[in-house]
Lab assay of single mutants.
Amino acid sequence: TEEYEYTDEQQAREAAREWREKGYTVTIEEHNGRWRVKTG
């Protein structure tokens, strides 16, 4: 599992979409105004 943090929701969603296209399972969670994208 890798985790990436973004301050911008749009960036987080874009990144998540790219990971999904590569076949990863992706979770996005908002935490204190930051967006965490977890792949695994």
Rank of each mutant, 00 (worst) to 15 (best):
R17Y: 05
E5W: 15
V37A: 01
R20T: 11
E14H: 08
R13M: 13
Q11P: 03
D8W: 04
Y4Q: 07
E21I: 04
Y6D: 01
R17N: 12
A16M: 09
A15D: 04
R20G: 09
N32S: 05
Y24L: 09
K22S: 05
T27A: 07
R17H: 10
R13D: 05
A12N: 00
E3C: 08
Q10F: 12
E3N: 09
W19A: 08
R36N: 06
G33I: 00
E3W: 15
A16G: 06
Q10G: 10
K38V: 15
G40F: 14
V26S: 03
V26H: 01
E3F: 15
I28L: 09
T39P: 10
E29K: 06
Q10N: 11
E30G: 06
E29V: 11
T1R: 10
I28A: 02
R36G: 04
A15R: 07
D8L: 05
R36D: 02
V26F: 02
R20W: 13
G33P: 01
E14V: 10
H31L: 13
T25E: 13
G23H: 03
H31Y: 11
G23Q: 02
R20D: 06
W35M: 01
R34F: 10
T27L: 09
Q10T: 12
A12S: 02
R34T: 07
E21M: 05
R17P: 01
I28Y: 03
E30A: 09
V26N: 01
D8R: 04
V37K: 00
A15C: 09
A16D: 02
N32W: 03
T1D: 11
W35L: 02
G40W: 13
I28N: 00
W19Y: 09
G23M: 02
V37W: 01
I28V: 13
W19D: 02
T7S: 14
R20E: 15
R13K: 11
E9G: 04
A12H: 00
D8F: 06
E2I: 14
A15Y: 03
Y6E: 01
A16R: 01
E2V: 14
E9N: 03
G23D: 03
T1W: 15
T7D: 15
A12C: 05
A15M: 07
R13L: 14
R20M: 14
T39Q: 06
R13W: 06
I28P: 00
R34E: 04
T39W: 13
K22F: 04
K22L: 11
E18G: 09
W35K: 01
K22I: 04
E2H: 15
N32V: 02
E5N: 07
E21W: 03
E21N: 08
E2M: 14
G40N: 15
Y6L: 02
T7W: 11
A12I: 01
T7P: 12
E29P: 00
R13F: 08
Y6P: 01
E18M: 12
T25H: 14
T39G: 06
E2W: 13
E18W: 08
E18K: 14
T25R: 09
Q11M: 11
R36I: 15
E14R: 11
Q10S: 11
R13I: 14
R17K: 13
Y4G: 06
V37G: 00
N32T: 03
T1F: 15
K22Y: 04
Y4F: 13
K38P: 01
A12P: 00
K38Q: 08
R17S: 09
V26P: 04
T1K: 11
T1N: 13
E3T: 13
R20P: 01
W35F: 07
R17W: 05
T25K: 10
R17A: 12
E2Y: 13
R13G: 04
A15H: 07
E2S: 13
W19Q: 05
V37H: 00
T39D: 03
G23T: 01
V37R: 00
T25V: 13
H31G: 06
Y6R: 01
T25W: 13
Q11L: 12
E29M: 09
W35R: 00
E5R: 04
V26L: 02
Y4R: 08
R36T: 13
K38I: 15
Q11R: 09
E3L: 11
Q10R: 12
Q11N: 07
W35V: 02
Y24R: 05
E30S: 09
K38G: 05
I28R: 00
E5K: 05
D8T: 14
T25A: 09
T27Q: 09
A12T: 01
Y24T: 03
R20N: 08
H31I: 14
R13V: 10
T25F: 14
R13S: 07
A16E: 06
A15W: 03
A15P: 00
E14Y: 03
Q11T: 13
E2K: 13
A16T: 04
E14P: 00
I28Q: 01
E2T: 13
A12W: 01
R13T: 08
E14K: 13
W19R: 05
R34L: 09
E5Y: 15
R20Q: 15
E3Y: 15
R34S: 09
K38D: 04
Q11D: 11
E21L: 06
Y4N: 06
G33W: 01
A16H: 03
G33M: 03
A12M: 03
A16Q: 04
E9I: 11
R17M: 10
R17E: 13
D8I: 05
I28G: 00
A16I: 04
T7V: 11
A15E: 04
Y6V: 02
H31P: 00
G23F: 02
W35Y: 06
K38H: 08
K38W: 04
H31D: 10
R17G: 07
G33V: 00
W35E: 00
